[in-house]
């Protein structure tokens, strides 16, 4: 499974990446965590409000930092 964190490097984006890593570890899943920070790559997802989270290329959350529990629910 591939988790992509979209964000240009603001503190919220790092927070989201951190939450995503924790969620994956707690769920016991083997995931690949990728940070997408190039603006044009982020746009390719159709996202304009960062941070955003995509799982296997599908955008799940836009414009906010979801909690660890929320992310876990998206992964399982």
């Amino acid at each position: 499974m591939k988790i992509q964190v979209l964000g240009t490097g603001c503190p919220k984006c790092s927070k989201l990446a951190e939450n995503a890593a924790t969620a994956a570890a707690e769920a016991g899943l083997d995931v690949e965590l990728v940070k997408v920070s190039e603006l044009n790559d982020i746009l390719a997802f159709g996202v304009m409000m960062t941070p955003a989270l995509a799982v296997d290329g599908e955008v799940k959350v836009v414009g906010k930092v979801p909690s660890v529990a929320d992310i876990k629910a998206m992964l399982v």
Binding site: T8, C10, L39, N40, I42, L43, V47, M48, M49, T50
Partner: peptide, 8 residues
């Protein structure tokens, strides 16, 4: 957040 929104 201004630049991503601008691009969007």
């Amino acid at each position: 957040t201004v630049l991503p929104l601008f691009a969007g």
